[in-house]
Structure formats: structure tokens, C-alpha cells
Design a binder for these strands. Structure first.
Lengths: 216, 216
DNA sequence: GTCTTTCTGGCGGTGTCTGTCATAGTGTCG
DNA sequence: CGACACTATGACAGACACCGCCAGAAAGAC
């Protein structure tokens, strides 16, 4: 874990300790809000860092002290949530069937999702309409798949480089991605949680039923 | 189809007509070769457009008349091949079972793949080691999935926005992606064609067997 | 209160990518 | 073969993302 990441986590977990941390968290949220608003109004590409900085009452230079890049404003939150959720799988009882653990992961996503519904929809909308963001969005899910792959390998007692851990993790990521796309295209009308669940049952479950090696 | 794309296709299909087209194709290949060499030598990020241009004996400005971006040097070929191959599915007999058509698509990929093995390996290696390229690579596959989705919907008599066409197309793309990753990690030792085939049978076939709606 | 640590803004630089224009080479038609 | 249209090219200027650096301001520890 990087130093920056640890600090961020600490600041979030201990909630608020000093004035400095509170201010920093506040500024970060200001930037996110300002950016999202401008993106929705003028489009992602047409919005410059300078405009975001001005709207958030900071200097352009400071923007990059809060976010690594322009796309990060939209994806950092999701990225953190995803990897943290995937990592939390390590705390599940080791004897629990893998498919049950994955279903538990869905619960965590559902909880995260319900707290931030409106923004999620905006974010995914931007991601699916802007090519550059679409690529970054896919890569974000790919990052979660890597964490997931190691967990699946551990649980199945296989090497992480093997075929089955790869496919299970990728199938899960794909189930999530397709659900997000479907949800976005329905303008949030469909039930995202249900969509992911269905897709996981359709894509992932067949890979796992019948023990550890159902395939050829 | 864009004007540029049409021209490219024409130039490829009619092979070589005038001196102009031949020269243009030659320059394009020079740029590709120069770029790939520099990427492998110094890394993708450490290579500048200026260096590529110099190695290819063109001006930096001209580089962007052949490729839309730096990443495009590596991905344009694959992108074209993928979408063309996916589009060629339209010429399969309409009564052919969908799964058979998809297996046919694998054949096309295998043929393309065998003609350019070494470079493919280099390209995928770069894509899996450079974050920015990884994202673009995933997006390339996503583009193929979109074409595939429409085809699947047409064949199954469903709407392209439905769940099943989405999942089938995404599963196919994922099968391909995982195979590419596995192949790259084995340094080309494994049989890429076989890997894709296995993954498709594992991931896609379960979605299609038992008619048009096997799921719940 | 001082001292240390952290945050911030500004400056300058690199690199990607684009619009524009003049020039030179290519294809075509009379 | 000569006039014409078309296209490719290179040079220039510019927008924007991003980063290293430094000096000043603010916060926390003592």
C-alpha cells in the first residue's frame, strides 16, 4: 500500500481528527462535486482542469494533489470501493463455498451502491459516453478482477495463474460490467443489484457448480 | 464508416493501385515498425512521438496523419481486424446455430493470428505491462463486443439491448481477453488458438445450449 | 511563543494532440 | 506534353494534461 493510500484510508476511517484532515476531505469533495457538475454540463472532454479548479476554489496545481488525473476524479471512489470490497473477501470463513463468498461480495456492492445512487448513475453515464473514460472504467474493473483472481485461486487451492481462477474472476467482473451498462442504459430504472445478481448466477455459477473442476 | 476507414479498407482490398497508395501503406508500416522497436527498447511511456517520427523519417505532425494517437500505433491493426472479423459474421448462413457461427469466428481469428504471431506477442506484452495501454486494449475488445452483440441479437431474434445478447457478446470478449492474457504470460508457449477455444466453450457455450433461453 | 510538518499557489517545462497554411509531389484530362 | 485538381507533407502556433520545484502560509507539537 502506498503512503498516500494509507493516509487516505486513515483519514476516512478515523473520520475526522484534526482540522487539517477535515479540510482536506472537504476540499476533495468540493473538487469532485465541481468536476461532476461541469462534466454533466459541458461534457468531459470540453471541461478543463482550470475550470474545475476555479469552480472548486483551488489552483490548477492543487487539483493534482488531490487526484492523479482528470479521469481519477470520476473513478477514484469506485476504484477504492471495489478493491477494498474484493479484499474484504479474505475475512470470509475459509470453509464457506466460493460461490457463497461471491454472493456475499454482491451484498457489499449493493450496500455501497445504495448510498450513492444518483452520482453512480452520472458517473457511469459519463463513462459509457466518453471513449477515454470507457477505457479507464474497464481497466478499473480489471483491477478488481486481479484481486478476485488471487482470492479464487486461494479458495480453490489452485495457482493464481491457472485457467479457472482467471475465468471465474473475469466472469465476475464481466457480470458486474454488463449490469452497470444495462443499468445505465435504462436510466436507473432497472434494479442494479438484481441485474448484477442475475448476471453472476448466469455467468459465474456454471463455472463453479459441481466442485472445483467441472470443465474439461 | 468514416472516410479514413473507407480509404484504408480500399487501399487494403484493391491492394495497390497507384504509387500514392503504395507509398502511404509503406510509410504506415514504417511508423508501426519504428514505434514497436522503440517501445520494446525504452518502454511505451518513455518513447515520444518525436522519436518515433525521427526513426520513421517523417515529421511529428505527419505521425498524426497516419495514427490518431500514440496508442493507436499498437491497437489500430487489432481493432480493424476484430471489427472486420465480427462484421464478417453477417455472411454466415442465417440458419446456422449461433454457437457454430461463433466457432467459425474463432477460425478467422486463428488465421489472422498465425500471420503475425511475433508482433502480436510484443503488442500484448506492452498492453499488459503499461496501464494506459491496458485500458485501451480492454476498450478495443469492448468495441468488438458491441458488433457481436448486434449479431447475436439478430440471430436469436431478440433486441440488442436485451440481457442475453449482451451477456453472450461480453462472454465471448472475455474469453478472448483472458486467452490473450494467458498466452502473453506464457511468453507465447501456449497455443493461443486452443486457449480461446477452451475459454469460449467454458464461458459462452453454457449460455447458449438448450435453445435461446436456457437461463432462469 | 517557537519549531516542524504539511498544504498551497505560481512558475516553468515536457509531451500529446490539433488547426492552419504554404509547398511539393501525384494523378488526370485535354 | 502541359495545365489543372488533389493530396501528402512539414513547419508553425496553440490548447491542454501533467509534473518538478520553490517559497510562503497554515496547522500541530512542544
Amino acid at each position: 500500500m502506498t503512503d498516500t493510500a494509507r493516509k487516505t484510508l486513515t483519514a476516512e476511517r478515523v473520520a475526522v481528527v484534526g482540522l487539517r484532515e477535515r479540510r482536506r476531505a472537504r476540499t476533495r469533495e468540493d473538487i469532485e462535486a465541481a468536476a461532476l457538475g461541469l462534466f454533466l454540463e459541458h461534457g468531459y472532454d470540453a471541461t478543463t482542469i482550470e475550470e474545475i479548479a476555479e469552480a472548486a476554489l483551488i489552483s490548477p496545481r492543487t487539483f493534482f494533489r488531490y487526484f492523479a488525473s482528470k479521469e481519477d476524479v470520476l473513478l477514484a471512489r469506485g476504484r477504492d470501493e471495489m478493491t477494498l470490497a474484493a479484499r474484504s473477501l479474505a475475512e470470509r470463513p475459509p470453509e464457506e463455498p466460493l460461490m457463497d463468498s461471491l454472493r456475499e461480495l454482491l451484498q457489499i456492492f449493493a450496500a455501497l451502491h445504495s448510498t450513492d445512487r444518483e452520482r453512480q448513475l452520472c458517473r457511469i453515464h459519463l463513462c459509457t459516453t466518453t471513449p477515454h473514460l470507457a477505457a479507464a472504467f474497464l481497466e478499473m474493473i480489471h483491477g478488481m478482477e486481479l484481486v478476485l483472481r488471487d482470492f479464487v485461486a486461494l479458495r480453490l487451492g489452485l495457482e493464481a495463474s491457472g485457467r479457472r481462477p482467471r475465468l471465474v474472476a473475469a466472469a465476475f467482473g464481466t457480470a458486474f460490467r454488463v449490469a452497470a451498462e444495462t443499468w445505465q442504459e435504462s436510466d436507473g430504472a432497472e434494479d442494479m443489484t438484481l441485474l448484477v445478481r442475475e448476471n453472476v448466477e448466469t455467468l459465474v455459477a456454471p463455472l463453479l457448480e459441481g466442485g472445483t473442476a467441472p470443465g474439461p
